[in-house]
Computed example of a mutant assay.
Amino acid sequence: MSDSADRNVFESARPRLLGLAYRMLGSMADAEDAVQDTFVKWQGADRASVVNADAFLTTICTNRCLDYLKAAHRKRVDYVGPWIPEPLQTDTGSDPETDLERAQSLTTAFLMLLERLTPKERAAYLLKEVFGKSYREVAETLQMSEAGCRQLVSRATRFVQSQSPRSVPTEEQQNMFLSAFMSALETGSTDQLAGLLAESVQYRSDGGGKTTAITRTLEGSKAVSKYVARILGRLWQDGQGQVFEMEINGMRGLVLHNGERIETALTLGFTENGLVDQLFLIRNPEKLARLEDTVHCDAKSGALWH
């Protein structure tokens, strides 16, 4: 195979590898590094001995992500306040048949759920349930027995299903909440907002120690709605920023612009009956630096590309 053909093989796999790496790591910068590391390994491989290029690349990328997760765990011990995955401005299309899979695999709420799995559980679950690999392929990728792989996927699936009902809020429900959120910011009234929050709602803000952000998790509809109306309302309305709607990780969200720079991004998690049970406010400038760049998503394959 020529160098050109070898590169074409890799480039055809790159979007899928990037989709896997981002879901594994919650960081597009780290995901791109993992994919680039995979390319370097591909260039140096004896490709005549590679029987299945897709399986080879998936294995290299997955194991590189597992290495990144080990390093990330050490870094997050010292992270200031809650850690939230890097938000993406997404273009996921509008195929209603794939809305469920799209929302489940890209939303901030789902990525946060994956953080509670072990790295190998996360890898096995994503490869099997999101990227459609067989148990044999997943086992070969993770270099373990097929029986062990089935146990990993089974544990991860039970946890995910117990924590995350497989339902997606309608466009109307998403719009209704964003409208109520903006009304609370502008008027200070929590009447409309409180009715759309689950009793167990949680509010997290990620500033990473680099900008102002509350460093504890707020819980309960009363505390969260009061904080939005009284604190965020003052902060968002007193400044010179403008608020815009944006598709963030496959769902509607809000961004606060301050001049040419995005200062804050808001994304949500919903319950099975359409109430908001999680609010994620990302303020860490390192995580917002590339939010203006649209990332396209193929919901059927899980692929991501710029």
Rank of each mutant, 00 (worst) to 15 (best):
S164E: 03
W42E: 13
L114M: 11
R290P: 00
G220W: 09
R230W: 11
G209W: 04
L113F: 04
K222D: 15
A21P: 05
Y22D: 05
D293I: 02
E247K: 10
L127G: 02
F181D: 02
R230E: 13
L254R: 00
Q161S: 15
E32K: 15
M182S: 09
E140M: 07
L254I: 02
P87N: 08
G220R: 06
N8F: 04
T157K: 13
S27E: 12
L66Y: 10
E172I: 02
T107W: 06
M28C: 06
T212E: 14
L113R: 13
R7D: 07
R64K: 15
V224W: 02
L185N: 12
D293H: 08
V276Y: 07
V40C: 03
L254N: 01
S205V: 07
V295D: 03
L178P: 03
S162G: 15
F131N: 05
G19M: 02
T62R: 08
E292N: 13
R234H: 13
E86V: 11
S167M: 08
L197S: 07
W83G: 08
E115F: 00
I60V: 15
D6T: 13
G207I: 02
Q240P: 04
S105G: 08
G207Y: 01
T38Y: 11
S221I: 00
R234S: 13
H306I: 00
Q240G: 04
E199L: 06
Q192H: 05
G253W: 01
D3K: 08
S164H: 14
E97I: 01
N175T: 10
A289K: 04
S225Q: 06
G239A: 03
L152K: 11
A194N: 08
V255C: 10
Y227T: 07
S167C: 06
A29D: 15
A123C: 10
L69D: 04
A180S: 12
A139K: 02
Q163V: 10
N8C: 06
F159I: 03
L218Q: 14
L106R: 08
K75N: 14
Q202L: 09
R116N: 14
R102M: 05
L111C: 02
D30E: 12
A123D: 11
P169D: 04
E186Y: 05
R76A: 11
R283Q: 09
T38D: 03
L291K: 04
S179N: 14
A184G: 12
D46E: 14
L197N: 07
D78Q: 10
A194L: 11
F177K: 11
V243Y: 08
L256R: 05
L18Q: 06
E172S: 10
D30M: 07
K287I: 05
Q36T: 13
T90N: 05
G239C: 05
F10E: 05
W236I: 07
E247N: 13
S162K: 08
S105E: 10
L268D: 07
S179T: 15
L235K: 12
L57I: 06
S200R: 09
L275N: 00
R102P: 01
Q143L: 14
Q192L: 03
Q163E: 09
S134D: 11
Q192G: 07
N284Q: 14
S49H: 15
E32N: 13
N273I: 14
Q174E: 15
L304R: 09
F110V: 00
L232G: 01
N284V: 08
E97Y: 10
G188Q: 08
E263S: 07
L17R: 06
L18K: 02
E97G: 03
L69G: 06
F39C: 12
V228P: 01
A109E: 11
W42P: 11
P165K: 07
K222Y: 09
